Simulated scan of single mutants.
Amino acid sequence: MTTTPAVVRTPARTPRVRAIAAPSALRIGRARAVLEVRQFFRNKGAMFFTFSMPLVMFLLLASIFDETDKATGVSTQQVYVTGMLAMGVMSTCLQSLALQVGGERHNGTLKRLRATPMPPAAYFLGKIAMVVVTSLVQAAILLGLGAAFFGLELPADPGRWFTFVWVYLLGATACTLIGLVASNLVKGENGGPVVLLPVMVLQFISGVFVIFSQLPKGVQIVSAVFPLKWMCQGMRSVFLPDAYASVEPAGGWEHGRTAMVLAAWVVVGAIMCLKWFRWKGEDEG
């Protein structure tokens, strides 16, 4: 009698399941940035208002006031270009952002986004990318218009462009943070004037619509507290000749003080944003 050898069965191997790592906040932020930029350029009304407002104001002022300072050789049209550059940054990064975020809070978009696994940092990265892209496009249009028709000379010195970069970055960062906090003031569809009025007042007292050296001394002191005055002065130091520095109230460009004030507003804006930014409206608890 023959015996059948025993068959040894090996246990079946369980296939390994690879854990899928959750995407990082930076990766989600990049995707959010692309979405925000696309949404902006698809919104024809917002795009038209954002780009046309500084251009229309500049063309009006440049056509009405056409004088040249004999001591410096700088025309008022060239000065207005630099003021509109700073105005464009504030209008986009503060005014437009506050209205947009306030609208998203009012219609419940912020509340729904906060309930998703998306890190809050990704939302802010998306908004920052949107305002950076739009404000840079706006600046390029203004500089092209000023250089082509109003005698603005684009600097050949890399140092001046470096000044433009840090003035722009500090100013845009400060305005963006303040804009996020100011969005709390936008309640419903009629909350725009709460943001628009202070921004318009700052434009008049900071050297955008009126040559800063022609403003009363008391107004100059008040405007020096806020970032727009220093953004305008920083832009003048980039695109106007050094001879114009003698027209400034302090007799110079004051780059150190400009950087200090703008950096202080970045810190203040960050603290206010961390403390007071809300994802839900007041009536939602």
Rank of each mutant, 00 (worst) to 15 (best):
V201K: 08
I178Q: 03
T176Y: 02
V186M: 06
M200Y: 14
V199Y: 05
V186Y: 02
L177D: 01
S183H: 02
P193W: 09
L202P: 03
L177M: 07
L185H: 05
A182N: 09
K187V: 15
L180D: 09
C175T: 15
L196V: 13
G188D: 04
G188W: 01
L185M: 11
G191K: 07
C175K: 13
L196N: 14
V186E: 03
V199T: 13
N184C: 05
G188I: 02
G192T: 01
V181N: 00
V186C: 03
E189Y: 12
F204K: 01
Q203H: 12
C175D: 12
N190V: 15
F204R: 00
V186R: 07
P193I: 01
G188P: 01
N190Y: 14
M200I: 13
G192S: 10
G188C: 04
M200H: 12
I178L: 14
V199N: 06
T176V: 09
I178H: 03
L196S: 13
C175L: 14
L180G: 08
G179F: 09
V181F: 02
F204N: 00
L197P: 05
V199P: 00
P193Q: 06
N190Q: 15
G191C: 03
G188R: 02
V181S: 08
L180C: 11
T176D: 12
C175W: 15
G192L: 03
V195L: 14
Q203N: 13
F204H: 02
Q203S: 11
E189M: 13
G188N: 02
G179P: 04
V201I: 15
L197V: 15
V181R: 00
S183Y: 00
G191S: 09
L177E: 03
L196R: 13
V194L: 10
V199L: 09
M200S: 11
A182S: 12
V201W: 13
P193D: 01
V201S: 09
F204E: 01
P198V: 04
Q203D: 09
G191W: 07
G179N: 03
V181K: 00
V195H: 09
M200D: 08
E189V: 14
V201R: 09
V201L: 15
T176N: 08
V181I: 06
V181Q: 02
K187D: 15
P198L: 08
V186A: 02
S183E: 02
V199W: 04
L185T: 08
V194W: 05
L197S: 07
L180Q: 05
L180F: 10
V186G: 05
V194S: 09
G192R: 12
Q203G: 10
E189I: 14
S183R: 01
G192Q: 10
N184K: 00
I178F: 11
P193E: 01
V199D: 00
V181T: 13
V194F: 11
G188K: 04
L202H: 05
G179D: 07
L177H: 04
G191E: 07
G179H: 05
F204D: 01
M200E: 10
K187R: 15
G191R: 08
K187T: 15
P193F: 07
L185P: 07
G179Y: 08
